[in-house]
Nucleic acid binder design. Sequence first.
DNA 1: ACGCTACGTTTCGTGTCGATACTATTAATT
DNA 2: AATTAATAGTATCGACACGAAACGTAGCGT
Lengths: 194, 194
Amino acid sequence: MKNQALTLLDTVERLGHLLRAGLRQAGTTNGLQPMHLQALLYLNEANRYSNTPQALAEYLGLTKGTVSQSLLLLARRRLIARHADEKDGRLVRLALTDKGKEVLKELGVGNAWRDALQQASPARLSSATKVLKEALAILQTKSGQKTFGVCVTCRHNLHIGPRSYVCGLTKEKLSSREVSKICREHSPIEENVA
Amino acid sequence: MKNQALTLLDTVERLGHLLRAGLRQAGTTNGLQPMHLQALLYLNEANRYSNTPQALAEYLGLTKGTVSQSLLLLARRRLIARHADEKDGRLVRLALTDKGKEVLKELGVGNAWRDALQQASPARLSSATKVLKEALAILQTKSGQKTFGVCVTCRHNLHIGPRSYVCGLTKEKLSSREVSKICREHSPIEENVA
DNA sequence: ACGCTACGTTTCGTGTCGATACTATTAATT
DNA sequence: AATTAATAGTATCGACACGAAACGTAGCGT
């Protein structure tokens, strides 16, 4: 047992491999690259502040030019729709088309995982999740990346009543559905400031 | 708390992103793609049965043609050495050059991780590792992939004395250093056959 | 009006990646 | 021994990812 952190790193790395290989295989059916599927998955979960090319680029850690190309391809195949924002002429809003949603459904991305983890005890599962989430948060802030969490775990999110939320950053009301979506401006609630 | 497995999946996915982004950034310094670094990392850990193009292709989940191209590039830059196997003329043995090892050292791949996980308690760390390893094994066998573990955890490995090992598959002696390397023929020891 | 910054696209060069076709060596069959 | 099959690797092609850099445009500041 030389270094626990490194064996965990290795395991996560291998899991990442598997996920990627799975995406690749799933994608070849539709002639899509892993990156395309990741984009679709992201857009399916992005809230109204985060459905733009720039946000996607930040999420994937790629340059905007690269992302622009891939979005062009996805639009060509009618998997996403693009239309300009009405308030801000610089922004392009991205949304999945029905066809795009269908592709995601057919993939059934998490299915293999659900099966694989069914044996594990929920307690240990949640413990593992917690460890990894902490690590993720540390690594993200350390590398200067945004965290891209859901509003529920965001310090800007204000729970002002039953099923009633407001984003302290934009002062806009958020539906209870929207607060479980990914936001580009997400800033995690700091709990253990010890 | 709708589905623990899926949130864990999500976290691992994001960690995979980060790892990949880190590799990409680290690689641009030397003009290398993530895949190249993964290849170098693999060759640094591969045992004598597994340092071939084919094994690398299986490890990365790519086709041999693709891998062949990347290896060509790495050889061009003198990061790896290629020479034919003496017994089997079809095989090409791959090895890191001194320059290749140096590149890996400069990267310091796991450093950020070590730091990020230093706060976590060892007990929870090992628990998380265990959960993920189980999931990994299940997913690997399910997707028909090889496990690529180290000999120590392989059912073929026989511990015949102090610091003395033999691979039951090839009947060859293995050094104590070699049994901690990655093997293509790895088959995990099944513990909980419950 | 002026620069300044942010968002997005375009272009270009390098490289990944799968598919296919090909060579060479070894193993299996007849 | 000769033929056939299987395995390891390479070569070529086309589609596309990716970063870098240049560009256009919209909003924001003085």
